[in-house]
Amino acid sequence: MSMTLTGKLTLRSDNPVETRGGNTSTFTRVTFPTPFPEGAEVVVLAQVQTFNGPHTPGLRLANVTREGFLIRMNELYGTNVQSDGTHGNETVGWFASTI
């Protein structure tokens, strides 16, 4: 039987775009209101719910566990994209489920 949890948070980025894999020092911890059962495999989907800035905010997730996950807004960055990585407040919705 699968279990699901949902939530939302306000997220912003005051830091430049993070390009080093594994560096989660600027991520925000989300703790589930109820942990998933011991041994559960958990997936998390997150999506920006608002449109408060002119640049496209990307999201990065890391360290998904039965107790929560890390999330960071990482404003999209690439060739011919003008982005400094910082981004104002946006509402982010998330959905977590066992698989």
Rank of each mutant, 00 (worst) to 15 (best):
A96V: 01
R29F: 13
P37I: 04
R60D: 03
D84I: 08
S25C: 09
G53N: 14
P54L: 07
G88L: 12
F36M: 13
E75R: 08
G68W: 04
H87L: 11
T56H: 14
S83H: 10
N15Q: 15
G39A: 12
Q47C: 08
T4P: 00
G78M: 09
L11Y: 05
G88E: 08
T50F: 03
G85Y: 08
V48E: 01
G53A: 13
T26P: 03
T24V: 14
F32L: 00
V64A: 07
Q47D: 11
F69D: 01
T50W: 02
R20Q: 15
T91Y: 05
G39W: 07
E41Q: 13
V48P: 01
T79P: 15
T28I: 03
D14I: 10
P16F: 00
K8E: 14
G53S: 15
T10Y: 00
M3P: 07
W94T: 02
L5E: 13
L9Q: 00
T4W: 04
N74T: 03
F36A: 10
V30M: 01
A62N: 06
V92Y: 01
P54N: 03
E41R: 08
S97A: 15
F27W: 04
A46M: 10
G7T: 05
H55F: 10
L70G: 07
M73G: 00
W94N: 06
N52M: 09
E38D: 13
R66D: 10
F51K: 11
K8V: 02
G85I: 08
V48A: 04
L5P: 04
T6Q: 10
L45P: 09
V92E: 01
Q47P: 03
N52R: 13
P33D: 08
F69P: 03
P57T: 05
G88W: 07
N52E: 11
G78Y: 09
G21H: 04
I99S: 09
S2C: 15
I99V: 14
Q82F: 15
G78W: 06
T4S: 05
F95P: 04
L76E: 10
S2G: 15
V30L: 07
L5G: 07
N74S: 03
T6V: 13
P35M: 06
M73F: 02
V48H: 01
R66A: 12
D84F: 04
T79G: 12
L11W: 03
S97K: 09
I71T: 07
R72L: 12
W94P: 00
L9A: 07
N63P: 00
S97L: 14
F69A: 00
R60Y: 00
G93W: 07
R66G: 04
V44H: 04
L70W: 06
F69W: 05
S2Y: 14
I71P: 03
T24S: 14
T34Q: 11
R72N: 11
E90G: 01
L9E: 02
N52D: 12
L11C: 10
P35R: 12
L45E: 15
G53Y: 08
P16D: 04
F32M: 03
T10I: 01
N89Y: 00
T65A: 05
P33L: 01
G22V: 09
E67R: 02
L76Y: 03
M73L: 10
V17M: 10
T6N: 14
A40E: 13
F69V: 01
N15V: 14
T86S: 12
A62W: 00
G21F: 11
G7P: 00
F51D: 13
T4C: 06
L59P: 03
G78N: 08
T50Q: 05
E41M: 12
R60E: 06
E75K: 05
G68K: 06
